[in-house]
Amino acid sequence: MLLESVLTGAVRGGTSILYPTLGEVISERAGVVNLGTEGCMLAGALTAYAVGIETGSVWLGVVAGVVAGAVLGLLHAFMVITRRANPIATGLVVTFLALGLTALFGQDYVGQGVNAMGPVAIPGLSDLPFLGPILFDHDPLTYLSFAAAPAIWWVLFRTRAGLNIRAAGERPEVLEAFGTSPARVRYAAVVIGGALAGLGGAQLSTAFTLNWSERMTVGRGFVAVALVIFAAWDPLKAVGGAYLFSGAISLQLQLQARGWELSRYLLEAVPYLTVILVLVALSHRRRHAAPESLGRVLA
């Protein structure tokens, strides 16, 4: 059934986009755009793969991938918050840095087999018609992402820490007046954002594709940054955005496999067209959802 296959593909392929999108939501909620997300993903993908191979433990690999993403996040935070560099330029530089470093250090791991994080069917639930394959026959990191989005929503909107993050992105001077350093909050948010992007990369290499190859994220990190706008900086809507994008990829491949006689050029553009069209349609409403001090340098 087409719908079931497409939705299953949306979830299976969406996890590696959802994590960086969630990370970027946190980062931008605190006021910092991070175009280094693509680089954080690549670093996470390679590090998880390499450490997974070297130690024989894919979970250690995933942890290392998260750390690698966080380290690049920290670099971005240092440049943008401490050195007050332009966040757009810095983010791109971070991505290029990661492109080069992962290509260099990843050479030895091209074609090597990682101890994969395979799918784990949830007994009982995975046999449900329709919902079973869509939701309950995935790898552990995908299940974790089901919990991560609401958890991040709860932290952002129901806790003190979340209030601080949002204040750092809206009115950092108010946060400062209450005795909390907005710079410190921003640092934490960008590092966590990088870590989540690293986790997305780790899922891509060790669970979804079981592969490392140069530039293997192919722009997924940039898509994540665009999806944050789509999601109006809301972690729950980010789930919809990530699955919409990967669902569009899945749809075009499923249609090809079913022999639909549509232009393959058009089909390949579908995921990107979808995101662009939705962004255009929602652009007016979304503008008001942006954190007020997004991209503003702290005084």
Partner: peptide, 27 residues
């Protein structure tokens, strides 16, 4: 033979889905 194009020489994420969509068709 069901032929599927990915529009890329190497995009593992697309490849994974392309393989699944073929397998879904009984390939």
């Amino acid at each position: 033979t069901i032929a599927i194009s990915t529009g890329s020489w190497c995009d593992p994420g697309l490849q994974a889905e392309a393989a699944k969509s073929l397998l879904d068709q009984g390939v």
